[in-house]
């Protein structure tokens, strides 16, 4: 279903899905490379996110994403309600229904209001570390932890991790080719092993790195490796080259009693916290989280 501009418009498909499942269509929410997202409401009044994949967009990665989300059961991970397929004029469209998280993304909040106070950072870190522990127990690595993939619940503070589009299941073979220069990730928040496509170094500590960058950004508004006045590309290059933390970051982390952020963002996984419970204990003891 193409618009006059050649863009695929999946809203009619969304309407048909709502009709078939007895849902109420609310509004168009957003769009990614392979999907469009709509807000819908079920018969009990719960608002859900309906994600319709573009025709032919379903791939091994999509399957992995859905499988991973189906295995997760955590209050801070978006809950998958249904996965199905609809045929419209001989074309098959895959779609998923997820809980709709109302409070916008952490990224929006940080752009709007600036860094969070300590009282907000502590529970944010605590919840997200618990999420990593849950993923680790399932041998899953999210690989794209960043403020824009953390939604805030209606209370404005409870984080919910979304977008498992590049999740890695360590029990399954990697889908990333060894020849690729860089593994899938959002570079600014990615660990060196992602940036260098060191596939065998990817594990939960890769997410720990990204979480460390995200929490640093949320707490201080800086990247741990970014020197003052530096372009983001240079920061990413420093991480990829396994360079050093910026002096500014180390001073901020030290001055705020959050040196564990420096451990979380060490350039080699072996230098980070080895186990999620170890990280959780340190985080809680330093933040009182």
């Amino acid at each position: 279903m193409l618009t006059s501009g050649g863009r695929e418009d999946l809203q009619p498909v969304a309407h048909l899905i709502c009709e078939e499942r007895g849902l109420e269509f609310v509004q168009h929410q957003g769009e990614g490379s392979f999907k469009q997202v709509f807000q819908v409401r079920d018969t009990e009044g719960e608002v859900l996110a309906l994600k319709v994949l573009k025709a032919g967009a379903a791939s091994s990665r999509t399957e992995r994403e859905i499988e991973a989300m189906q295995r997760c059961a955590h209050p801070n991970i978006v809950a998958l309600k249904a996965v199905s397929r609809i045929r419209v004029e001989q074309v098959a469209y895959d779609y998923v229904l997820e809980t709709f998280v109302q409070g916008g993304t952490l990224g929006d909040r940080l752009r709007r209001e600036g860094p969070l106070g300590r009282a907000e950072i502590a529970p944010l870190g605590h919840a997200m570390i618990d999420v990593l522990a849950h993923l680790h127990s399932l041998r899953l690595v999210h690989r794209d932890i960043k403020p824009d993939n953390v939604m805030l619940a209606e209370d404005g503070s409870t984080p919910v991790l979304v977008d498992f589009g590049i999740v890695r299941d360590l029990s399954a073979s990697s889908l990333t080719h060894t020849w690729a220069n860089r593994g899938p990730a959002t570079p600014y928040f990615a660990a060196p092993e992602q940036l260098n496509n060191d596939k065998h170094l990817i594990d939960w500590r890769t997410d720990q790195f990204s979480l460390g960058v995200m929490l640093t950004y949320a707490a201080f508004g800086v990247h741990p490796f970014k020197c003052e006045g530096e372009a983001p590309d240079s920061t990413v290059a420093r991480v990829a080259n396994r360079g050093e933390h910026s002096r500014q970051f180390l001073e901020l982390a030290d001055g705020n009693g959050l040196l564990c952020l420096s451990e979380m963002t060490q350039v080699w996984p072996v230098w980070r916290y080895r186990l999620p419970q170890e990280l959780a204990a340190v985080w809680d003891s330093t933040t009182g989280g």
């Binding site: 170094l201 072996v270 230098w271 080895r274």
Partner: peptide, 10 residues
Amino acid sequence: PAAIASIVSR
């Protein structure tokens, strides 16, 4: 050493 230790410690 760091790369090997990173894998082994998993």
